[in-house]
């Protein structure tokens, strides 16, 4: 009965595809659709518009801005006029410093924020204690924390990481909490009915059930981390992309501003993609659901 599997159409659901097959399949599908080409066209259109406004027609107000051609030439120059390009170690030191700060802050925010959010969602009494505090602290803009942060921490490094951490932390906690709340009551009942003890409920229902929201939260929190980092670096920094932008402005090295901004954009985008990748890896059930 089990020999002639291929002949049965419904037997297809017996084969569980592995994650690589799914990823490859999706990539091929994506390349066949119009999406990637429209994506590129959209980007190219923006650069073209920027070029026309700043460098070709030199429209009032825009003429003061650095154009794409000048910035690109500076970026790929072996001997850059303002000292920052693909060929200068300084460029990488700025990137490395910023990435390390974000990484420290993000890891700390995740390690503290995810468990806190899970506990808040799990135990009502814990949530009752902490939720109003969270909701009061969360809307305070990161820039408002700058003075306290400088007062509290010795040296600029710790205070920049702290600011970055704060931006990231609240988004992580809130989304994790929402993730726990998104779990249908019926799964808790089923788990209890099957004899689950509290720790099973935590590790087998609350944790996996909230993961989709947790990872959405981590992507948002990564965005906030970069946002707060640049704010922090502009105020007090020696290295880092935020510092580079502000310093280039003061020193009238405008193309460098563009180089640093685009670099921030690309790294920010890559870091979000990385989180998505890890999320998909951990949530095969979600990935396969989407395939159907």
């Amino acid at each position: 009965m089990t020999t002639n599997v291929d002949a049965l159409p419904q037997a297809a659901e017996a084969k569980a595809p592995n994650s690589w097959t799914i990823a490859l399949f999706n990539l091929r599908l994506w390349l066949k659709s119009s999406t990637p080409y429209l994506n590129l066209l959209g980007l190219a259109g923006f650069v073209l518009l920027w070029y026309l406004l700043t460098e070709y027609f030199k429209v009032p107000y825009f003429e003061k801005l650095p154009g794409p051609v000048a910035s690109f030439r500076e970026w790929v120059s072996e001997d850059p006029a303002y000292g920052i390009s693909l060929y200068t170690p300084d460029y990488y030191q700025h990137i490395g410093t910023s990435v390390m700060r974000v990484l420290k802050a993000f890891v700390l925010a995740t390690l503290l924020g995810v468990p806190l959010g899970l506990f808040m969602g799990w135990k009502k009494i814990f949530r009752d204690y902490t939720f109003p505090l969270l909701e009061t602290l969360r809307p305070i803009p990161m820039l408002a924390w700058v003075p306290l942060s400088i007062l509290m921490w010795p040296g600029r490094e710790a205070s920049i990481v702290f600011l970055t951490f704060l931006g990231s932390f609240f988004a992580t906690v809130l989304n994790t909490l929402l993730g726990v709340e998104s779990i249908d009551e019926v799964y808790f009942r089923a788990a209890h009915s099957l004899g689950a003890k509290p720790r099973h409920v935590f590790f087998k229902i609350i944790l996996p059930g909230s993961l989709p929201f947790v990872f959405t939260g981590l992507q948002i929190s990564m965005g906030f981390a970069w946002f707060s980092l640049v704010a922090g670096e502009m105020l007090a920094g020696e290295y880092g992309l935020g510092y580079l932008i502000w310093n280039s402005f003061i020193l009238v090295q405008y193309p460098v501003i563009i180089i640093a901004m685009v670099t921030l954009g690309v790294i920010g985008w890559l870091s979000s993609a990385l989180i998505r990748l890890v999320g998909d890896r951990l949530m095969q059930w979600k990935v396969r659901e989407a395939c159907r």
């Binding site: 019926v186 089923a190 004899g195 689950a196 087998k204 229902i205």
Partner: peptide, 29 residues
Amino acid sequence: GADRIVVFQNGALFPWFTVLENVTFGPVV
């Protein structure tokens, strides 16, 4: 308790577990 198991109206298999993990949930916990 596991001596009175409920099968729910809209289904309550845990979507994050495979069929095997779902079926063994009771005995394992």
